[in-house]
């Protein structure tokens, strides 16, 4: 089962995560998860890098404006989701998505044996294809619940959905993504 990191968005009485208000520390701590979130939300490594940079540029500006302790982890998650949505809704980006082609000649990962690498690349390719095919909302819910480890309540608060809706989106996303894994364990 996934380990939960938990961002106290729903529980206002919780002690805020007063992360070190130092840009370098925040960047080092949160960049990997922000980048991962962007990758899943956008499905493209280049776009994910761009949006990740944009998010940390906003963080740099926000740090100057912050006068009291801020839960930067939660702030970063919300800003990342917004930035990815901005990117998704741009017409230029949509056009690129339509005209993008899939690469069938991945270079095998040198960390694995050829057999493991073949399975690993094939499985990963199918998983990423399935993720890209998910509706945006399902992708967001899956990323926040399963990758970020947010609770159903926190995810609902962040995405402004009901908890029932979050469960429904998560169930559909998992069912769809599991189809991509069929035959992977043969």
């Amino acid at each position: 089962m996934m380990q939960r990191a938990g961002i106290a968005l729903a529980d206002e009485s919780a002690v805020p995560t007063v992360a070190p208000a130092n840009y370098d520390d925040l960047y080092r701590t949160h960049r990997p998860r922000v980048l991962r979130l962007c990758r899943v939300m956008l499905g493209n490594p280049d776009d994910a890098q761009d949006i990740c940079q944009e998010v940390f540029l906003k963080l740099h500006r926000a740090l100057r404006d912050a006068t009291t302790p801020v839960r930067w982890e939660a702030w970063l998650t919300t800003v990342t989701i917004n930035a990815c949505r901005d990117q998704r809704r741009s017409r230029w980006w949509r056009w690129l998505r339509v005209h993008e082609t899939l690469d069938d000649d991945d270079i095998p990962d040198s960390r694995f044996t050829p057999e493991q690498a073949a399975l690993s690349n094939e499985t990963r390719r199918r998983i990423w294809q399935a993720v890209r095919a998910l509706p945006a909302r399902q992708r967001e819910v899956f990323a926040l619940r399963q990758l970020e480890g947010l609770s159903t309540e926190d995810t609902a608060a962040l995405l402004q959905l009901s908890t029932g809706s979050v469960k429904q989106h998560l169930f559909r996303a998992i069912r769809q993504l599991r189809l991509a894994l069929e035959g992977s364990y043969a």
């Binding site: 490594p45 899939l102 690469d103 990963r124 990423w128 990323a143 998992i174 894994l181």
Partner: peptide, 18 residues
């Protein structure tokens, strides 16, 4: 399956021409 998904999605996306 959830563990495999988590692992795969924590790595670089595969299958997109960049």
């Amino acid at each position: 399956d959830l563990t495999v998904l988590h692992t795969a999605l924590s790595q670089e996306p595969v299958g997109v021409v960049v």
